[in-house]
């Protein structure tokens, strides 16, 4: 045990480990805040869908020889988020079917484009690392960490200032609209924030595991807590602690970072299910 602690303290001296922990905490914070609204709106798989769109956008940047693919990725992901999350009863193209279609189509298109325009020899590695994240979070530059900080400040501020409006819109959109809340505007803002967080969170766990990061903490919190505020706070705490623990376990035992985080989140979810069941009795 002391050996493990000693190793851990040694590892914590490395700058890239510190960056990983900071960025991990911040991204976990942002995605869990949004996770609660997404799960309650029954859009749990949108994290997965939008991350595939981001993957496709990054693939599109290859034939265009862009050095920085972030603007294009953000643009396309935001556009899809707005399309999928827009409100209104008469839209035929919504719901889980739309998410599924966009998710699978962009994954396939992205891979096709990469194959056709492969400028690097190691195409499958590029794809694999984008999908699974590999060790991206442990290879962050200070610039990216600052970007995470800026994003988190924006997301947390947005959430705190508009918390009650978000609740009103998520709980009952019809009532909110009828009583004068500008529902369209809030849905649009939410869609943009979700898209931005997902594009940045791809650094943490990769495309395939985004849904877990968005969904598991919220679901765990929903098992035990009963008010919107307590569910949100619990979700954030679970997400941050789970991410930190996942990163620490993965650097100690040499497992991939993303999947370890998800495994920890799953364990926490099972624990909360048990707690919830015991409380119910």
């Amino acid at each position: 045990m002391s050996e493990i602690i000693k190793n851990l303290l040694d590892y914590l001296q490395f700058p890239f480990v510190q960056y990983a922990l900071i960025a991990g905490t911040l991204i976990a914070l942002c995605s869990s805040l949004l996770g609660v609204t997404l799960v309650l709106k029954r859009y749990s798989l949108i994290g997965d869908g939008l991350s595939h769109v981001a993957f496709c956008a990054m693939a599109c940047a290859l034939p265009l020889h862009m050095t920085n693919d972030m603007p294009l990725t953000l643009l396309l992901t935001i556009a899809c988020a707005v399309l999928l999350l827009r409100s209104g009863r008469n839209t035929r193209f919504t719901g889980d079917a739309a998410v599924a279609m966009i998710s699978v189509a962009s994954l396939a298109l992205g891979y096709l484009i990469i194959n056709l325009c492969a400028s690097s020899a190691n195409v499958s590695a590029d794809v694999c690392s984008t999908l699974f994240g590999s060790t991206s979070i442990l290879t962050l530059t200070p610039v990216k960490v600052w970007l995470c900080v800026a994003l988190s400040v924006v997301v947390v501020t947005f959430f705190v200032l508009f918390y009650h409006k978000i609740f009103a819109v998520v709980f009952d959109e019809e009532f909110a609209r009828a009583t004068g809340v500008r529902v369209e505007m809030y849905n649009l803002l939410l869609a943009i924030v979700i898209a931005v967080v997902i594009v940045l969170a791809m650094n943490l766990v990769g495309s395939l595991l985004i849904s877990a990061l968005v969904v598991f903490p919220a679901l765990s919190a929903l098992r035990v807590y009963k008010s919107f505020l307590s569910v949100t706070i619990c979700s954030v705490v679970v997400s941050v602690l789970g991410t930190l623990l996942g990163i620490i376990i993965s650097i100690l035992s040499g497992t991939p970072v993303g999947v370890t985080i998800v495994a920890v989140d799953l364990a926490v979810f099972i624990l909360f299910c048990i707690i919830g069941a015991c409380k119910g009795k």
Partner: peptide, 20 residues
Amino acid sequence: IQKDFPASVMEVVLSGCQGK
């Protein structure tokens, strides 16, 4: 969705003031 929503009664009732 609403029937299964995790919200306290106060949170629900207060959301009626949001339009003001």
